[in-house]
Design a protein around this nucleic acid. Structure first.
Lengths: 118, 118
DNA sequence: CTAGTGTTCAACCATGTGGTTGACCAAGGC
DNA sequence: GCCTTGGTCAACCACATGGTTGAACACTAG
């Protein structure tokens, strides 16, 4: 069930702090301490945020001495984009058709539909 | 602060039921009753879900007799896509550069860098 | 006016989430 | 071995969220 995965990714990005972490990780990998520095919350809180991002598949982690560098995993972002774009395009396509219908109502003879509504 | 808006949209789509509602609204508008039918939760629960989507700016509503048809608003989806793509591309670009560096380490003379390491 | 249909409001409950603090584990530096 | 550095685990708290039920509202049809 990739449904659960999608839910976790959306939920992970629903938090402004976590979105900011993602934004910074897009620039380059970082340890929890570095990530925590700009925010005025405890290190543990940031550690939790990172764990949420990790469980959503958005970041992976490795070891470097005592540090646990966080690494942004862009594939999951692609998964989201695909989901969103699918329905956005579908909806906009529908609106285009609706616009067509409205235009047709404005001027009842749009083209040369030979059936003719004389 | 569009930050708050973005948080609400992501949070709204973090729920599978709400994502399914969005999926169905992409096909066409629907009232709360119709939306609720397939799910085995109460009508009130679905009404709440719709409200969340509405407050996130994902759906708008009108009146049609007693019914309150829900209408998918694709612009906000576009907002999300822009946010996601921005960092996905940034991250992938960074990885490409990293790949370049690694390739350079493999074969120290990639092109014709005229400084020459003869 | 009355009855019926579609939807929302209100109160409540269980669970999840973001935050805290304090203790603990892991890896190097000395 | 010992202490510092970087990070996690655990218990707890306040509050948000998804769910329920029952009453109320809005609007239409007789």
């Amino acid at each position: 069930m990739s449904d659960d995965r999608l839910s976790r990714v959306f939920a992970a990005l629903a938090d402004p702090t976590r979105r900011d972490i993602v934004r910074r990780l897009a620039v380059g990998d970082a340890g929890v301490g570095e990530l925590a520095a700009p925010y005025d919350v405890s290190l543990q809180a940031v550690s939790k945020h990172v764990r949420v991002l990790e469980e959503a598949g958005l970041v992976s982690r490795s070891r470097d001495a005592q540090r646990r560098p966080c690494h942004l995993e862009p594939e999951v972002l692609d998964l989201m984009t695909k989901w969103i774009e699918r329905y956005r395009q579908q909806a906009e396509e529908r609106f285009s058709r609706l616009d067509g219908v409205l235009a047709e109502l404005d001027q009842p003879e749009p083209l040369g539909e030979e059936g003719a509504a004389s």
